[in-house]
Design a protein around this nucleic acid. Structure first.
Lengths: 201, 201
DNA sequence: CAAAAGTAAGTGAATGGTTACTTACTTTAT
DNA sequence: ATAAAGTAAGTAACCATTCACTTACTTTTG
C-alpha cells in the first residue's frame, strides 16, 4: 500500500533505525545519541524502538553489523579484478574514503565504541571489523612485496598501521574543518605520499 | 605542616583535578567521566569540586589547557637545537609518541572533545591546539623542502595530514591492543615509512 | 598574644533534569 | 480476530549543580 508510514515490518524498521543512528552520528557525539533522539528522527515514539530491539546496545550492535558488512563488501568489490597489489591498495583506500564521505557518522561511531572501557557487544564488533580490515591490507602488502612492487625492507605491521592512520588523519581533518567534501580532494594526495613510502625504488 | 591532606590550596587542588581527569580518561570513555568519579578518585566529595571550578566544562577546559601547554612545550623542547628539518620532524614525532605513552588519556580526550556538535570551550581549545601543532609541522616541511631534504613535488597539506594521521594510527592500534608499550616500539618503524614518503630521492 | 572574626576548603544531602527501559492500552494489517 | 506495531505515561537510576553547614587555617583587634 506504501501510503502508510506507520506499522512497518520489523525488518524494515530495524534497517531504518540503523540508518537513522548513522545519520545522527554524523551530526552529534555518538556517545550521547539517545533513544529519544533516534525515535524522534524516525517519527516514532521512544517506546516503539523497544518493540524491535531489546535494548540500546542491540541497536548499536545492529549498526556495527551494518557498518562491517557494507564497508568490507565495498572495499572487497573495489579490489576485485585488480591485479597489481599497489593498485589494489589504492582502490581500497579510495573506496574506504568515499564510504566515509557518504557516511561521516561511521568513523565517529567506530572510534566512539573503541573508547569504552568495558567490552560491550558493539565494541567487540568494532574490534573484529578493524582486525578483518587490517588482514586485507596485510595480504596486499605481502603480495606487493612478493611481486617486487613494494620496498623489500618494509615493515609490514607498520605499513598497515600507517594505512589505517592515513585515513584516520583525513577523517580527523574533516572533523576539524567540519567539511566532508575535502576528504575526496585530499585523499589521493595523502595516498601518494603513503605509496611513495612503501613502494620499491 | 604537610600532614593534612585535606584543605589543600586551590591551585594545588586544581592541578590534581586535571591530572586525575587525564588518569581517568586512560581507563574509561572520556565522555562518561562523571564529577563523582573525579571526586572519588581524589578522595573528595563531589560538591568539593565546585569550590574550585564553576562547572564541569571549566574542569575540561583546564585539562585542555594543561594538555596544550605540556604537549607543545614538549615537542618544542625536543626540536630546539636540531638543524635538519627531517631530524626535527622525527624528534617531534617521537616526543609526541612518548607523551602519549605517558598520558594515554590525552588523545582520547582530544578526540572525544572534537566529536561534540556544539562548540564548547574545551572543544575550541582542542581545535586551537591541533591547529598550532599543525603549524609547527608545516614550518618544518617547508624548511625541509627549502633545504632539499624533502621531495620538491610534495603536497604540504597532505604531508601534515599524514604526519598527524600516522600518530593517530599508532594510538588507535594501542587502543585496540590495550597496550601502550607497543607504541614506543612501533613508532620509529611507522615514522620510517612516512619519512621515505616525503624525503627527496 | 590570645580571642574574635574572616575565609577558603570540605561534607553530605537535596534538586531538577535526563535517560534507558517498562507497562497498559490502542491501532493496523493480514 | 489476533499478533505485530504503535502510543503515552510511567519508573528507577544517574548526573551536574546547589545548599546549609562544618572544619582548618589566617588575619584583625582589644
Amino acid at each position: 500500500m506504501a501510503l502508510h508510514v506507520k506499522h512497518l515490518s520489523g525488518d524494515k524498521r530495524r534497517a531504518i533505525t540503523v540508518e537513522t543512528v548513522i545519520e545522527l552520528a554524523a551530526e552529534q557525539n555518538p556517545n550521547d545519541i539517545t533513544t529519544a533522539a533516534i525515535a524522534n528522527r524516525m517519527g516514532l515514539s521512544q517506546g516503539a524502538l523497544f518493540k524491535h530491539f531489546p535494548n540500546k546496545d542491540a541497536i548499536l550492535s545492529a549498526v556495527m553489523e551494518w557498518v562491517s558488512k557494507r564497508l568490507l563488501s565495498r572495499v572487497d568489490k573495489a579490489v576485485q579484478s585488480i591485479a597489481s597489489p599497489t593498485a589494489a591498495l589504492e582502490a581500497m583506500f579510495m573506496a574506504h574514503v568515499s564510504f566515509v564521505a557518504e557516511h561521516p557518522g561511521v568513523p565517529r561511531m567506530l572510534f566512539g565504541e573503541l573508547q569504552h572501557a568495558s567490552d560491550t557487544a558493539p565494541k567487540r564488533m568494532a574490534q573484529t571489523l578493524i582486525s578483518h580490515y587490517r588482514e586485507r591490507i596485510h595480504k596486499f602488502i605481502e603480495a606487493g612485496k612478493a611481486e617486487g612492487e613494494l620496498y623489500s625492507g618494509l615493515d609490514n605491521d607498520a605499513a598497515v598501521s600507517l594505512f589505517v592512520g592515513s585515513i584516520q588523519g583525513l577523517v580527523m581533518q574533516s572533523l576539524l574543518a567540519g567539511d566532508v567534501k575535502k576528504l575526496a580532494q585530499e585523499a589521493p594526495r595523502v595516498f601518494n605520499i603513503y605509496l611513495r613510502g612503501i613502494r620499491s625504488a
